[in-house]
Simulated scan of single mutants.
Amino acid sequence: MMNPDRVEAMIKSELEDARVEVRDLTGGGDHYEAIVISSAFEGKSLIKQHQLVYGALQQAMASEAIHALALKTYTPQDWESADKAG
């Protein structure tokens, strides 16, 4: 069974500098929300950023260990801006 710590570890295995926050949305271990901050996102479109994260979770999503993922991605600079605005 998947858990938030495992999801976080899978993302960090592909995006080593990433700061990751994962929340189980339903308590059932298959619907998650993730916030990912990484310098690997710099210069990439939102779609490309999400593709990097989905690539890290590909095996879990293909096997339906993760059924749904609400995803927010930020570069470190974007995160600082969002954090100060919020």
Rank of each mutant, 00 (worst) to 15 (best):
F41H: 04
T75V: 05
R6P: 07
D83L: 10
V7E: 04
Q51R: 11
S45L: 01
D5Q: 01
G86R: 02
I11E: 08
A62P: 02
T26M: 12
K84Y: 02
E42R: 05
A34K: 14
I47F: 07
D24F: 03
L71T: 10
Q58G: 09
K84M: 15
E42F: 01
S38R: 12
G86K: 05
E16H: 14
T75W: 00
Q59P: 05
K44W: 00
K12D: 01
E16D: 08
G43M: 04
P76G: 03
Q49R: 15
S38H: 02
I37H: 10
S38L: 13
I66Q: 08
A34T: 08
Q51T: 04
L69V: 13
A82K: 11
R23L: 10
D30A: 04
K48R: 13
D78V: 14
E14C: 14
Y32F: 10
G86W: 01
S81I: 13
A60P: 01
M2G: 07
L52C: 09
Y32H: 03
T75R: 10
A65D: 03
S45C: 00
S45A: 06
Y32D: 05
S45V: 01
L69F: 12
M10P: 09
S13Q: 15
A70K: 13
G43F: 01
K44G: 04
A70R: 15
R6N: 11
V36C: 12
Y32G: 09
R6G: 14
I47K: 12
A60E: 06
D30H: 03
V22W: 02
G29T: 02
R23D: 10
M1Q: 03
E21L: 15
T26A: 15
G43R: 07
F41Q: 11
G29Q: 00
A82C: 00
A70G: 15
L15I: 05
N3V: 09
I37N: 02
E64M: 03
H50T: 11
P4V: 11
A40Y: 09
G28T: 11
A68V: 06
E14K: 13
S63R: 01
G43I: 01
Q77G: 08
L57Q: 04
D30K: 09
S81F: 15
A40R: 12
L69G: 09
N3A: 07
F41D: 07
V53L: 10
R19D: 07
Q58M: 09
V7F: 04
K44V: 00
A34Q: 13
Q59L: 06
L69P: 11
V36L: 13
E21M: 14
R23Q: 15
Q58A: 12
Y74I: 13
A65E: 04
Q49A: 15
S39V: 07
M10E: 14
E8I: 08
A56L: 10
Y74W: 12
G43Q: 06
R19Q: 09
Q77A: 06
P4A: 08
G29H: 00
Q49K: 13
M61P: 01
H67I: 02
D30Q: 06
E14W: 15
Q77F: 11
L71S: 14
K44E: 00
L57W: 06
S45F: 01
Y32T: 01
